[in-house]
C-alpha cells in the first residue's frame, strides 16, 4: 500500500461511517422538524432513531480510530493533522458562541436603549413605546413572559465558576500525571474533573428549575430570557458533551490506553474542556454579573 513509501496514514478501505452519520443527522433533523410542524409522535420517533444512529456512528468511528491509533498507524504528522483540526474546530465553536454574545451586546447596547428613547430612538420611544424605559435586565416594552427576576451572579453561578475553574486545574493535573506516567494520579485527576463537570451540570439544572419555578424567568421572558437561556443552555450542552468525552477518556485511561508521549485524544478533550471553561467566564461576566 501507499504507506510503503510514506508513513502518512491514508485509509484505503471502504468506509461506511460517514454515510451512516449523514443518515443519522438527517433523520435527527427531519424528525425534529416534523415534530415542530405538529407531527409530534412520528417526528419524535424519527428523531430518536436519528440520535441513535448518530451515536452508533460516533462509537464506530471513534472506536476504529482508537484501534488504528493503538496499532501505531498514526505518525507524528497524522497527529499534527488532528491537532490543527481540533484547534480549528474549537475556533468554529467560538464563533458560534460569538453570534449569541453578539445578540446579547446588540440588545443591551443598541436595541433596548433605542426602544427606551436613547440616541436615534427618541421617536421610536415617543410614538411606539411611550411607557417603556430602558433597564437591564428587561423583557422588552411588552414585558413578554411577565414580570421576572434576573438570575443573581453571586449564588450558584459563582459556585459554578469555582467548580469549572477547579476542574480546569484537575484536568491539567491529570495531564501532567499522564506525561509523568503516574497512572493513579491520571485517573484520579480525570475522575475529579468528570465529577466537577457533572456537579456543574447538576447545579445548572437546579438553577433552571429555580428560574422557572421561583423567578418566573423563562426562555420566553423577552430578550433577557432569550439570551440568558440560549447562552447558558448551549454552554450547558457543551459542558455535557465535554463531560461525556471526559468519561470516555477516563474509561480509556482505566483500561490502560495512552502513554506519556502519545495521547492526542486526551489533549483534544482537555482543550475542549478549557474552551467551555473560557466560554463560561464570558457568560459569568456578561450574562450574570454585568
Amino acid at each position: 500500500m501507499a504507506q510503503a513509501h510514506n508513513d502518512y496514514y491514508v485509509p484505503h478501505d471502504t468506509h461506511w461511517w460517514p454515510i451512516v452519520g449523514s443518515v443519522g443527522l438527517t433523520s435527527l433533523v427531519v424528525g425534529f422538524a416534523m415534530a415542530l410542524n405538529g407531527a409530534t409522535g412520528i417526528g419524535r420517533f424519527v428523531m430518536i432513531a436519528g440520535v441513535a444512529v448518530t451515536l452508533l456512528m460516533m462509537f464506530g468511528w471513534f472506536g476504529m480510530v482508537i484501534k488504528e491509533s493503538s496499532r501505531g498507524l498514526y505518525n507524528k504528522q497524522v497527529d499534527r493533522s488532528f491537532r490543527w483540526s481540533m484547534s480549528w474546530f474549537i475556533f468554529s465553536e467560538v464563533m458560534f458562541f460569538a453570534a449569541f454574545f453578539g445578540a446579547l451586546f446588540y440588545a443591551r447596547v443598541y436595541s433596548l436603549p433605542w426602544l427606551g428613547g436613547a440616541g436615534s430612538g427618541a421617536l421610536t420611544n415617543e410614538l411606539l413605546w411611550p411607557t417603556f424605559e430602558f433597564a437591564w435586565p428587561s423583557a422588552g416594552p411588552d414585558q413578554l413572559g411577565g414580570e421576572f427576576q434576573a438570575m443573581p451572579a453571586w449564588g450558584i453561578p459563582a459556585i459554578n465558576t469555582a467548580i469549572l475553574l477547579t476542574s480546569g486545574v484537575t484536568v491539567t493535573w491529570a495531564h501532567h500525571a499522564l506525561r509523568a506516567n503516574h497512572r493513579g494520579q491520571l485517573i484520579l485527576g480525570l475522575f475529579l474533573t468528570v465529577a466537577l463537570g457533572l456537579l456543574f451540570v447538576g447545579l445548572q439544572a437546579f438553577e433552571y428549575y429555580e428560574a422557572y419555578h421561583h423567578l418566573n424567568l423563562k426562555l420566553s421572558s423577552g430578550i433577557y430570557g432569550s439570551t440568558f437561556f440560549m447562552l447558558t443552555g448551549f454552554h450547558g450542552f457543551h459542558v455535557t458533551m465535554g463531560a461525556i468525552m471526559l468519561i470516555v477518556i477516563l474509561l480509556r485511561s482505566i483500561k490502560g490506553h495512552f502513554d506519556p508521549d502519545n495521547h492526542f485524544a486526551f489533549e483534544a478533550v482537555a482543550w475542549y474542556w478549557h474552551f467551555v471553561d473560557v466560554v463560561w467566564l464570558g457568560l459569568f461576566i456578561f450574562v450574570y454579573w454585568l
Partner: peptide, 25 residues
C-alpha cells in the same frame, strides 16, 4: 448557524431575539 438558530427559537420556542416587543430587533 447561530443566526438561523435564533430564527428557529423565535418561531417555535418563544424567544424574542428579533421581536421588539420583547426587547429584540
Amino acid at each position: 448557524a447561530g443566526a438561523v438558530t435564533m430564527l428557529l427559537t423565535d418561531k417555535f420556542f418563544g424567544t424574542s431575539f428579533f421581536n421588539p416587543a420583547g426587547g429584540g430587533d
